[in-house]
Design a protein around this nucleic acid. Structure first.
Length: 647
RNA sequence: GGCGGCGUAGCUUAGUUGGCUAGAGCGUCCGGUUCAUACCCGGAAGGUCAUAGGUUCAAGUCCCAUCGCCGCUACCA
């Protein structure tokens, strides 16, 4: 016997800063569907997921929650794992970057790279912004100043370790160019090549001294290993990689067949990660698939908007399989997808309750009604029967083809096409008419056999997407899961055996009623979130702190767009001082110059000047962030004189 | 500003290397059916394939321009 081919698939590890929402949960469901499908096809699958638990942000969250970082990540990692389990995902291993073996291995990796010269210690010079605690490369600076705050950057006393990306640049470029499917979809590949690799890679800072919650560098305890080497290496430490000799498991499964990740972290997985592996002398992953995002309607989910949906809320209402089905069927493979309650209910009713659920229900019901549940031997195959069988074969091959390209919604659709074909077959053969004619008994038995066989096949085809439903169908058939390699044979069921009773798989939803309930709940959540967010906020300041900020009323006397920037407007203000003040403001998206000229605004007049896109900006004007996508400038009453102090 | 992508029926979208009357699902309307979860089946209406040119025997599919949207990057005091 030849061994099963292996298939190693991973999700990104989830950052343990907050409980993930349904958009964040898409990835694990997507990966699970692929893993289940591969297993059904006979692959020896290893499916890895887990959590990324270090970093400054977590240190801060833990501090404000009044717990240790470890206690904090334990809680959130537990929630994340809980969601993976709730969604019925079949990961083989759940790695945490705080796991002991991972930390030790990361330290070894770091040391190895250091000893062979791929990581070197260096110091920044003139590129550190103390208030921002950020390092900047020469090219990132704006007019020699911090691009974040516009303040002076200092020659750094701060030391840090760097990974030599530049050394491997050529090798990486060749790998990407010669492995067409390595970065997928295609558009991502172009982004990486054009924006990063071709312009030249900067060496990557891989350690920090500004926080403690991380894996210490063994030979230099002031340093903590920064996210890249820590998080990315989970894909190999989980399998038992060891610079001094790896496990059998590692040798078997590495390299990964595919890393499933969000489109926002493609860069880390297709540049930093391959270079780390090159430096370690290990093979590169075969493919990185950057999937799109799931949005709420048109918007990103955010707590303050009250449009965050969590997996558990959704499964409570619709059930686990319906949620999985929605995610998998509604997400396009290259563009962002969206979730709305309306769409969720529509999908549920039309695809699951009507098309699939009702098909199974009517088939089992007829078998019981006409033959007391006893499966009849198929006799003669008519043209319609052959068409049905051909449709099954097509569904199988379409499913396969689409999954190979990560077109999961098309894969799901291929299965639904077959379910619809089955419903049509019932109309074509009219079993209820056959049942009235005793001489058609054999024909009726054959027709029902074909239908039972079809839903048996459907059960297998939907099983990667809706595993529980697949089981339920088999239970109603009183049959074991169909063997994948004989799935198209159309003879998996045994004549003479009995099917079970028909139980609806999905109960139709009263859309109007449920929608009203859900929207009411959402409103509530929004209010609660807004009430809760207020007190959290940022640290309190004293009145003296506030008085350091000089606010003045000023009139916009002129305004024009800045050519090189699409978000910036250049405003000329009369602040009562007699000399016009120039301010650049990132509000071009919401205001045109004519909207502003003649209006009175509030200007922060004692900000240090900064240069933006070639324009020197002296101060900033106040505006409200109404939402992530809407900004409104604060306009003053026209009777307020220019230069009036505001406090 | 640089690089890339997209604009197809009311909505969500398929359309491989250019080739017969541009497909599908949802929604709408009409008809049929009754085994079934008021379900299923059939039919219809609805598309100047963003706009304007060009290449070609032939373009949603290639080229150019314009408009709009999006991604990455730069930038957003």
């Amino acid at each position: 016997m030849c061994e099963k081919p292996k298939f190693y698939i991973t999700t990104a590890i989830a950052y343990t800063s907050r409980k993930p929402h349904i958009g964040n949960s898409y990835e694990i469901v997507l990966t699970d569907a692929i893993a289940r499908y591969k297993r059904m096809q006979g692959f020896d699958v290893f499916f890895l997921t887990g959590t990324d638990e270090h970093g400054q942000k977590i240190e801060e969250y833990a501090k404000s929650a009044g717990v240790t970082p470890k206690a904090y990540v334990d809680k959130v990692a537990g929630e994340i794992k809980g969601i993976c389990d709730l969604l019925n995902t079949t990961y083989d291993k759940f790695i945490r970057t705080t796991d002991d073996y991972h930390e030790k291995c990361v330290q070894k990796i770091f040391k190895k790279l250091y000893e062979q010269g791929d990581i070197y210690k260096s110091e920044y010079e003139g590129l550190y912004c103390t208030p921002c605690e950020s390092f900047w490369t020469e090219s990132q600076l704006v007019d020699g100043k911090c691009p974040d705050c516009g303040r002076e950057v200092k020659p750094a006393k701060e030391e840090a370790y760097f990974l030599k990306l530049s050394k491997y640049q050529k090798q990486l470029e060749e790998y990407i160019e010669s492995n067409d499917n390595f970065i997928y979809p295609e558009a991502r590949k172009k982004e990486m090549l054009n924006n990063f690799i071709k312009p030249g890679l900067q060496d990557l800072c891989v350690s920090r001294t500004s926080f403690k919650w991380g894996i210490p560098v063994t030979f230099d305890e002031n340093h903590v290993i920064y996210v890249w080497i820590d998080a990315l290496s989970n894909y190999i430490t989980a399998l038992g990689y060891d610079p001094d000799g790896s496990s059998e498991q590692y040798k078997k499964y590495w390299p990964a067949d595919v890393h499933i990740i969000g489109k926002d972290i493609v860069r880390f997985h297709t540049i930093y990660w391959p270079i780390m592996l090159m430096a370690l002398g290990e093979p590169l992953p075969k493919q990185v698939y950057g999937h799109p995002w799931l949005l709420f309607g048109e918007d990103k989910m955010s707590k303050s908007r009250g449009n965050v949906i969590y997996a558990d809320e959704l499964t409570e209402v619709f059930g686990v399989d319906a949620v999985r089905y929605y995610l998998l069927s509604e997400m396009p493979h290259a563009n962002d997808g969206s979730i709305t309650y309306e769409a969720m209910i529509d999908r549920f009713n039309s695809d699951l309750a009507n098309t699939l659920g009702n098909l199974v229900n009517r088939t089992i019901a007829m078998q019981n009604k006409y033959f007391d549940g006893v499966i009849q031997p198929p006799v003669k195959s008519d043209a319609v029967d052959e068409e049905l069988k051909a449709a099954a074969k097509k569904a199988i091959s379409d499913l396969d083809k689409n999954i190979a390209e990560y077109k999961i919604s098309d894969a799901v659709e291929a299965v639904m096409v077959f379910a619809r074909r089955c419903n049509k077959y019932i109309d074509e053969t009219m079993p209820w008419a056959l049942a009235k004619d005793e001489s058609q008994k054999e024909r009726l038995g054959t027709v029902l056999y074909n239908l039972l066989e079809s839903i048996h096949i459907l059960s297998a085809l939907i099983s990667p997407f809706m595993p529980d439903t697949a089981v339920k169908i088999n239970e109603q058939l009183c049959a074991a899961p169909i063997e994948y390699n004989s799935i198209a044979d159309f003879n998996s069921l045994n004549a003479g055996e009995k099917v079970g009773t028909a139980v609806p798989l999905f109960n139709r939803i009263d859309a109007e009623k449920l929608l009203a309930e859900l929207l009411a709940k959402q409103e509530e959540k929004k209010k609660a979130a807004q009430a809760e967010e207020k007190p959290e906020g940022i640290a309190q300041i004293t009145i003296d702190d506030f008085m350091k900020v000089e606010l003045k009323a000023a009139e916009v006397t002129a305004c024009e767009p800045i050519k090189r920037a699409k978000k910036l407007l250049k405003l000329t203000l009369d602040d009562g001082s007699g000399t016009p003040r120039t301010v650049a403001s990132g509000i071009a998206k919401w205001y045109s110059p004519d909207d502003l000229i003649g209006k009175k605004v509030v200007v922060v007049s004692n900000l240090k000047p900064a240069t933006l896109c070639g324009v020197e900006s002296n101060g900033m004007i106040l505006a409200a962030d109404c939402s992530e996508t809407d900004v409104k400038v604060l306009f003053l009453d026209s009777s307020i004189p220019n230069g009036a102090k505001i406090r």
